[in-house]
Design a protein around this nucleic acid. Structure first.
Lengths: 242, 242
DNA sequence: GAGTTTTGATGTCAGCACACATCGGTGTCA
DNA sequence: TGACACCGATGTGTGCTGACATCAAAACTC
């Protein structure tokens, strides 16, 4: 009971919409939601306002609260991402995040080589060495922790707040990959080397080298994960013409 | 007066927080906001809930509504981006968006080469040709329209909903660049060729070539824009250690 | 079929009870 | 006398409710 009614209402509706239980175009009445959730109008209205700001619903006078199509949802919102990962969109969401990572991390590494503060560069080098140790020793728990921190530091070191904001999502994919047994017993030897290459290139201020090494890591990551989402259909949103 | 009170309240508070008029840590009272905006408590509370979901404020019992530091804001939310572009964070926001573009578009082009529907590939080729015509003729208005549609199609054709969601932001940077006179009189000859290369590579299903050509466009774009934000300080968010 | 009225939903307002973190006073103990 | 723990007053967000305003869809009139 520690979570507020507002929080529970947002969560309830969000999971049901993103999870597909409430299909696109489905119309709800605020009054009906009050009964269903056993809460007052204020709670329902505040929750609906939040979902509206996420692009999940729209309110229309004289009609009610309508569920919007998925392409209107804000795919970068942490709530939406979490709800998708928890529901039937999990595969597609993981693919999207992996592709986003593969795009962002090389550029983040390149920027970090040019901008990151000295202390961050040194910590990065240290972590890459510790990763190699843990990897060679087969200590996958420690390796995962170091891996997460490594990629978080690269994103943070880019000095781009949008990249830094992806730390949470990247962490999610890294832990998810390990938890779901998609990681090899030992990390690939090349991957360990590439992490060290990224760290040393950033430390040396060599942007191109950092970018290329990070790109190699991403290519391998994608190659490992791709089979698990081969069956996920892709959605092509039509581009408005004006 | 057609906009709702709720919308105006969100807008008023959002612009003032993101614009820096309300500094980090500033505490407001709901009651005070009612007077300031001349609205009732419901409106204030619903607006605060939305801003809370964007990470702009937090509410603390017995204290009030506190403005959160910028690194807690959701940098991908369209509202936050718009408010930053309208305020003093404009330069930093444009740089962030440009860097995000430079990361995403090459990968989007690569994915489009592998996944985009046939009709989209053909339209892309047609647009790249029309861009060359308009560019050679110096018709910059038409060129801008085509340019916007070109990049929107690439992002859409990737089949990644996160990439497709960036269409609006990319459009903003492209128009902004032209409106603020950062575009050359005539588009660079190479840029026109690269756009055609991207289109033809996607049409031919050659992912690597599409990626490389798109990367060249991005490198040139960054090089053109970089001088305008050289003075913008970068912010490095510390990475939580656990 | 065009224009008008009715209806029913959200939008907005105002007042109340409650939970609870903070502050300050009071009491106890050393 | 001073330090510290306790405890109640206070103020503010949370949640509930009844009433009215607004506006667009639907029904109705001509």
């Amino acid at each position: 009971m520690s979570t507020s009614l507002h929080h529970r209402a947002v969560e309830h509706l969000g999971t049901r919409i993103v999870g597909g239980a409430l299909p696109t175009g489905h119309v709800m009445l605020a009054e009906h939601l009050e009964d269903e959730l056993n809460v007052s109008r204020s709670v329902v209205r505040e929750a609906v306002r939040v979902l509206q700001s996420l692009g999940l619903v729209e309110t229309i006078k004289r009609v009610g609260i309508r569920v919007l199509p998925a392409h209107r949802w804000n795919p970068f919102d942490p709530l939406v991402i979490r709800w998708r990962l928890a529901g039937e969109g999990r595969g597609a969401q993981l693919r999207s995040l992996a592709e986003l990572r593969s795009a962002v991390e090389p550029v983040a590494a390149e920027l970090a080589a040019g901008n990151a503060p000295g202390s961050l560069r040194q910590e990065l080098v240290g972590i890459s060495l510790a990763m190699k140790e843990a990897g060679d020793a087969g200590d996958m728990a420690t390796f995962l922790d170091l891996d997460i921190r490594f990629h978080a530091l690269v994103l943070s070191g880019s000095g781009n707040e949008m990249f830094a904001n992806l730390i949470g999502q990247v962490t999610e994919t890294l832990t998810g990959r390990t938890v779901h047994g998609l990681m090899p017993e030992h990390p690939q030897k090349e991957a360990l080397q590439w992490h060290m290459d990224v760290a040393h290139a950033i430390d040396a201020g060599n942007g191109a080298m950092a970018r290329d090494a990070a790109a190699k890591i991403m290519r391998q990551t994608i190659a490992e994960l791709a089979p698990s989402w081969d069956d996920q259909p892709r959605v092509f949103v039509p581009v408005s013409r004006n």
